[in-house]
Design a protein around this nucleic acid. Structure first.
Lengths: 143, 143
DNA sequence: AGCGCTATCTTTAGAGA
DNA sequence: CTCTCTAAAGATAGCGC
């Protein structure tokens, strides 16, 4: 957006699109860092380029935020349907933090890495189905 | 950052901090939308305010991006250690897309919502442990 | 709490190296 | 591909309402 007011629409030229993607991704990460620093919040940004490359940034870590998000999404038993809006309506999660990581003991140490990976894929698939079920309840803007 | 160049550090005043959080979160979501539109990419932003409120935005959906992220992170069997950097070095995931959602059939339909939720919590906990193991391999900037 | 304003800082498209 | 430069568009802190 400079010399001419750029339209916010898909860039057709592949090279240009990638250049813009790189620039804007860096800007997005910077903004996220500033938000985290100035507001003492937790945040994560995950991006996939069309080429399939993954870029992520998060504080305290991407995984931490993602896990917290998943926990919040998949915890309707807390008695609170969590609305997630792009425009950010107030979504109180109640006592979610306490519940996030119970001292659940699963026989994880008895498994090797191969089994872990297989289990992980199974979990990912199931998680997807669970999330799909919940998807109908919460409203989540796509654009 | 206006009249005087603002320092990017924690805002001590609670009300001010929340105001800034709201404004910058909106800006972050806008930037994400523009990135998605202009570069035809997939992206998700997840933020937690100090109060514990969750705000998320994603295209095609937050869950879609999160699941793809988890799949990429927990799929070292693809033979590629995926570096995730805040400064976004090229991280090729190989043929990841194909592997993302296999036609895995788990007995999910036989379960009720209560069981689903319990299973979900168990999965979340295990996922955390798996991710922690992988955490030592990949480098993921925290700030 | 939220919205409008706006001076001033930041981001970035486009071009060049 | 990566880097720099630059001017125009965009974001936003501090206000007032």
């Amino acid at each position: 957006m400079v010399r001419t007011k750029v339209e916010i629409k898909r860039i057709e030229d592949k090279a240009k699109r990638h250049t813009t993607f790189t620039k804007r991704r860096q800007g997005l990460f910077k903004k996220t860092k500033e938000l985290v620093k100035r507001c003492d919040a937790e945040a994560a940004v995950i991006t996939f380029s069309l080429a399939g490359n993954i870029f992520a940034f998060g504080h305290p870590s991407v995984d931490n935020v993602v896990n917290r998000y998943i926990a919040a999404m998949s915890a309707p038993e807390l008695g609170e349907v969590v609305p997630v809006h792009e425009e950010a309506e107030d979504a109180v999660i109640g006592t979610n933090e306490d519940d996030e990581t119970l001292g659940l003991e699963v026989p994880l140490d008895d498994m090797g890495m191969t089994e872990l990976e297989e289990l992980d894929r199974t979990m990912t698939e199931m998680k997807k189905k669970v999330v799909d079920k919940i998807d109908g309840i919460i409203s989540c803007s796509k654009n």
